[in-house]
Nucleic acid binder design. Structure first.
Lengths: 194, 194
DNA sequence: TAGGAGTCTTGCCATAGGGCAAGAAATGGA
DNA sequence: TCCATTTCTTGCCCTATGGCAAGACTCCTA
């Protein structure tokens, strides 16, 4: 196991037995993505998911007018997955793209299924990750209704500071549900608050 | 099994064996809620979830200013559950309230766990339900950014027509992220479109 | 190292939706 | 069946954000 230190963080020895880890860890494959490379594109059915060992990733959807809307940002340690596409086995509505060079660990659906149905701790952890995603999405969704754009921006930056280095203003703006023009003005206001 | 026709719809004989159904169905308990009764309140940890056999239910959160924001509406056949509270075993951020008298079938967490870990088809179905909720929430979230309020209202009414009979204008408005005043004007516009 | 593509800022004006308050309509008890 | 309460509508004006376009800045890359 010592040859995969990153995965040993993801699968804590306190939650998994040594035998379980020996079944799980070898199944993950290290893969590299270069800046701007796509991990998944709209219309394809996701057959993998990834843990990010290093790098930064964005997912986005294309709306009816052809504009792209950022749906999520993923940093080191995050799980990158299109849940509906991966589990419902249907074409993705989103694109997932590396914003920097990345090192990831990937698993395919069939292997996931066999681990999921044979190892109780594995499915507990998987379910927890999914519910955590659901919770984050719901909080963001409520925040879109109750909080002004400036507050949402501040919260986003405090939670994922890497975003400032890796993501364009426009891509951040669509995640917040505003235009790049408005976000530029909000940034100016925040600068003047000091 | 014939004494629980509703549950036989939820657990299709094509996905479960006879033996599995005999383990699953007796665990669900029929419960009644009267109009305005709470199924779950903020701060409590959810220990049950429900299938709705009849009735209509709303969930909502309270924002920092004390306003309530509708987060979901549940109709006949829907699964009513606070995913993060139920699975992460932490206090709920939401309230779930019956908007009409309801007949539901409930299951508690411990029983869920034993079925989840012992019956493969049960966990597949549970996972599918959760991913379906995630998908619906994400679509709503994207719609909040890309679609005008009028379109979101039309979509909501077409998907859950019962909402018109059971939910006040204000409670619908907060779900759409607008005020009751604005929704009233939108309704008027729609009426004039005819 | 200059040109060009993308990115960010800024000004001008337009618009969707919000805040408030008054009145109208519906609803629900007693 | 009548009153009280809640819900819904409407008018007035305001604010946050959008749309567009020009200019500034950055950063590739030939």
């Amino acid at each position: 196991m010592t040859d995969k230190p990153f995965l040993n963080q993801v699968f804590s020895p306190s939650r998994f037995t040594k035998e379980e880890l020996e079944k799980i860890l070898p199944k993950y494959e290290q893969v590299y993505f270069t800046k701007n490379q796509f991990l998944l594109t709209e219309g394809k059915t996701a057959n993998h998911y990834w843990f990010i060992e290093s790098g930064f990733i964005r997912s986005y959807a294309i709306d009816t007018e052809g504009n792209d809307v950022s749906t999520n940002f993923y940093a080191v340690g995050d799980t990158v997955i299109d849940w509906p596409s991966f589990f419902l086995r249907k074409p993705s509505r989103e694109n997932i793209q590396a914003l920097t060079d990345c090192v990831c660990w990937q698993l395919d659906f069939d292997t996931f299924q066999s681990l999921f149905h044979s190892i109780e701790a594995f499915r507990e952890q998987g379910r927890t990750t999914l519910v955590g995603s659901y919770f984050a999405l719901k909080n963001h969704s409520i925040s879109m209704i109750t909080d002004p754009a400036k507050d949402r921006y501040k919260k986003l930056v405090s939670e994922k500071p890497e975003i400032l280095q890796n993501v364009s203003l426009k891509q951040i703006a669509t995640f917040l549900g505003i235009t790049d023009t408005s976000l530029s003005r909000i940034r100016k206001e925040i600068a003047n608050e000091i």
